[in-house]
């Protein structure tokens, strides 16, 4: 049968169309500033990170030990205010070796690729991962299932931030 697909508009522009001045462009730049309160549960998480420890909350119903800690278990919808310290070690659930910046520009020559990972933290429930970074490892040596440990900032430099853990590094 004859094609009846209806297509109209969508006039493609080339870089030259813009640079030649044939197409007018209006520029603007937004500068937005925010100060986020960290909340009941995460505030304590950050306070403990400042102390060099990772703390989780346990759901009163399903008993999941959850990271990041939360005021309520979003699955059971009940309070999860039983605080539990967990380890600063874990297992790589998945990872990436990233060669681009946030704006899609490429990393420079000599700049190390970024090594994000999901790390399942020991002492939390199975599958309970947090996103963080890897370091002190050759990118091609990283494997899913590898055991890792947090490398902390010196105490005096900690600010109550997820960055109080500099990164995770492989351990035997």
């Amino acid at each position: 049968m004859k094609e009846k697909v209806q297509v109209s508009g969508g006039t493609g522009l080339s870089a030259k169309d813009v640079s030649s001045g044939k197409i007018f462009v209006t520029d603007d730049s937004l500068d937005c500033a925010y100060a986020w309160d960290t909340g009941v549960a995460v505030n304590r998480y950050l306070a403990e990170l400042k102390n060099g420890r990772i703390i989780a909350t346990e759901c009163r119903k399903c008993k999941r030990i959850m990271l990041p800690p939360r005021l309520f278990c979003e699955l059971c919808y009940v309070p999860s205010n039983n605080w539990v310290y967990v380890q600063d070690t874990g297992v790589i659930n998945t990872f990436s070796i990233c060669h681009v910046h946030w704006d899609a520009s490429r990393i420079g020559e000599g700049e190390k690729p970024h090594l994000p990972a999901v790390i399942e933290i020991d002492g939390a429930s199975e599958g309970m991962g947090i996103m963080h970074l890897l370091n002190e490892v050759e990118p091609d040596q990283i494997k899913i299932g590898m055991k890792v440990k947090a490398v902390w900032k010196p105490e005096a430099e900690r600010t109550g931030s997820i960055n109080d853990i500099k990164y995770f590094k492989p351990i035997e």
Binding site: Y34, W36, T38, G39, V42, Y45, L46, P68, N93, T94, F95, S96, C98, V100, H101, W102, D103, A104, H114, P116, A117, V118, I130, M131, H132, L133, I144, S161, I162, N163
Partner: peptide, 30 residues
């Protein structure tokens, strides 16, 4: 792509300066 950064958790993830591709790369790898 830069505007997707604000979907990451503002307190526990964004300070790590994530980039949108991470999330797909992590999922694809898994």
């Amino acid at each position: 792509q830069g505007f997707f950064l604000t979907i990451f958790d503002s307190i526990t993830e964004r300070p790590l300066q994530p980039n949108l591709l991470w999330i797909f790369a992590l999922e694809m790898n898994r």
